[in-house]
Simulated scan of single mutants.
Amino acid sequence: MSAGASGAARLLALAGAVGLACAGCGAFGAFGTREDPFPVQATAKGVTPQFDLAVEDDRLVVEYVLENRGEEPVVVIDQLPRIIGMGELEAEDIDPALAYVSAPGGGIVRVSRQVWGLGDESGDASVQPVVGGTRIAPGEGHRGRMEVPLPAEARGPEYSSPDYSDRGLRRADSIQVCLGIVDDLDGDAELVPVPAGVDGQVLLCSGTEALPAEMTLD
């Protein structure tokens, strides 16, 4: 973390430590708003994350470390395009700092990188956008960073649930960080295209903790 960070960095507890939803449970369902098609887990496919969160000047910064201790390569969804809804991706399309900001319910702000939506078998990118991922081979690790400008505003695909709205953010008093993870897909290891309607995404999440005192919501 930067020496000029505003406020102490905090290590978010793993989801399992606070009894967050188990495999097969939905994040939105757990908070009583609507069923989420993606299970929320502390560890998935042999990968356990560490998330480090701090407020630095005018932005929330999340740094994360992943290690694949499983036997198969996986793809972590951590490369989001500047323009939501793109059907194809090149390296220059990626915003290296971008994260989605949503309100899944229960007074939570969720900062995430993931495939978003209920899925669509047609592969229509206007229903579920294509995003990018990074392949992590067994025994390998991966580091990343995402930033949220403050005051935080909701950001996510337009087709998503109203629960991600700014109104929901203003009711929040806690925060959670998530990364989508899927089985291995074809593509260059440094930018794996994750197609619309991909099956089997799991949200690899921290537990929830109080919003940093320095974090402002629009």
Score class of each variant (00 low, 15 high):
M1Q: 07
A5R: 11
G7E: 09
A8W: 08
R10S: 14
L11P: 07
L20T: 01
G24K: 09
G26L: 10
A27N: 11
G32T: 06
G32L: 15
R34V: 15
P39G: 00
V40A: 09
Q41K: 02
A42Q: 02
K45W: 01
T48C: 03
T48H: 01
P49Q: 00
L53M: 13
D58I: 06
R59N: 15
V62L: 03
G70C: 02
G70M: 01
E72F: 12
P73I: 05
V74S: 04
I77T: 00
D78I: 02
L80Y: 00
R82H: 08
G85Q: 12
G85E: 14
M86V: 15
E90G: 07
P96E: 04
L98R: 10
Y100Q: 15
S102L: 11
G107D: 06
G107P: 11
G107A: 08
V109S: 06
V109H: 12
V111L: 11
Q114S: 13
V115Q: 06
G117M: 08
G117T: 12
G119H: 03
G123L: 12
G123C: 05
D124K: 08
S126G: 14
G133S: 08
G133R: 03
R135K: 14
I136R: 01
H142C: 03
H142Y: 02
R143A: 03
P151S: 06
A152K: 05
A152M: 09
E153D: 09
G156E: 07
S160H: 10
Y164T: 13
D173M: 14
S174I: 03
Q176C: 08
L179R: 03
I181V: 02
V182M: 00
V182D: 00
D184C: 12
D184I: 14
D186I: 06
G187T: 04
P193C: 14
V194D: 07
D199I: 02
D199E: 13
D199F: 05
G200D: 00
L203T: 02
E209I: 04
A210Y: 05
A213K: 10
D218M: 15
